[in-house]
Design a protein around this nucleic acid. Structure first.
Lengths: 214, 214
DNA sequence: CCAAAAGTGTTTCACTTACACCCATGA
DNA sequence: TCATGGGTGTAAGTGAAACACTTTTGG
């Protein structure tokens, strides 16, 4: 233990960029700070890593505490460790991003007691610490990820229509997507299963429902 | 400071995966451990993050100390924080990977005093801690990266031939690369400049030299 | 003149993009 | 019957992959 004791230790936190889609917009959960520093500004939810807890466990615990959800998509982003990033002392932040789906985000809304709120990712308020940098990085990562992987499904309910999925892509990428090419690409991936159900929604043809495999 | 003081703090280290190419092989720098735990096993070079030092600075300092090089390509990889990864206590490791070019790796060899050595990445010895996982992740990242970016140049001297660059790709990807397609792709990228020099190397046609722009 | 690495184009195939109309429903 | 979003196919273009011979040099 000698080597370990010789050095002053920084504090280590996890900070979460929790995304969801509401009202046709990509949202991030922010918390209004009640204390100095940066009192009154908005910040990413986060907290200290327990001494017996893995980083991923700490992130999952925060997610549970702040949003009341479990088993959502969670991925480590980057570790920020500039010595001056927190004026109170040396704090190293391991950032994660999470995707909360449409079904469970209502639970999240419940936790919106007073000082937690969904904000548009594309015009966020001024953020505390270096959280704007973290947010920007998370958005960049999400955009890349959605093009190469299937994370898009994490933002939808279990059953969804192809139009809903297309909207997720358009909202994240902030550009229109061609309907026919999109459907071709998604169906070719073979990652979704067509269900024997449709959803009627107003005065037009009902849409087929699909579910994500695994 | 109250919040910061309330929690027991983990130790934070940086661990480095330092790559270079020697003898037609991708190598990683490893250090033989002189103390418990894992005495006698090989480990990635690394060390504690100084309290006033950014993570990147700590990584650059380690690189300087271990390999004697500065201003090489350095990129944060991932942060490993399982509570049991170090039997001496809670140690969170921020890993970086570095690319040391052919010209400067001779300096590195000098530092190979007794217990530091270049090992083949593809058949490494048994590693201490979770360093095998870190190494595997770094190799995976390097392979992806070389396909989408221009990091390959970081492993070569300032002036190089296209065949040398091709070898870098073949060694990292561990598969043969078509000469004509490779040259077409690289030249189309517009990232290298043809020099008015050639290099003669034995009884055959001399190769044109190129340099990387910026 | 021989051995050895450098250098060079064309064809094929797969994937991406652009694009417009009919369908099923509720009001 | 009309308005609304759901659903479908084809042609053109772009980028990746396969592939073999000539050039320049030193010995």
């Amino acid at each position: 233990m000698s080597q370990l004791e010789k050095y002053p230790r920084p504090s280590v936190t996890v900070d979460l960029v929790i995304f969801t889609i509401v009202d046709d917009d990509l949202k991030v959960l922010l918390i209004r700070r009640g204390n100095e520093p940066y009192q009154g500004l908005w910040a990413l939810p986060g907290g200290f890593v327990g001494i017996g807890e893995s980083l991923e466990e700490a992130a999952a615990r925060e997610l549970q505490e702040e949003v009341g959800v479990r088993n959502v998509y969670l991925e480590q982003l980057y570790t920020f460790g500039e010595p001056e990033r927190d004026p109170r002392g040396r704090v190293i932040s391991v950032s994660y991003f999470a995707l909360v789906d449409a079904e469970r985000q209502t639970i999240a809304a419940a936790s919106d007691a007073a000082d937690a709120r969904w904000h548009s990712v594309f015009k966020p308020p001024r953020l505390a610490f270096d959280h704007r940098k973290i947010l920007d990085y998370a958005v960049w990562r999400l955009r890349n990820k959605i093009e190469w992987t299937t994370v898009g499904y994490e933002l939808l309910a279990k059953k969804f229509t192809l139009s809903e999925l297309q909207r997720v892509y358009e909202i994240i990428l902030q550009r229109p997507v061609d309907k026919r090419n999109f459907r071709k690409k998604i169906l070719l991936q073979g990652q979704i299963r067509e269900l024997n159900e449709t959803r009627s929604d107003g005065a037009h043809r009902p849409a087929k429902l699909y579910s994500f495999k695994q």
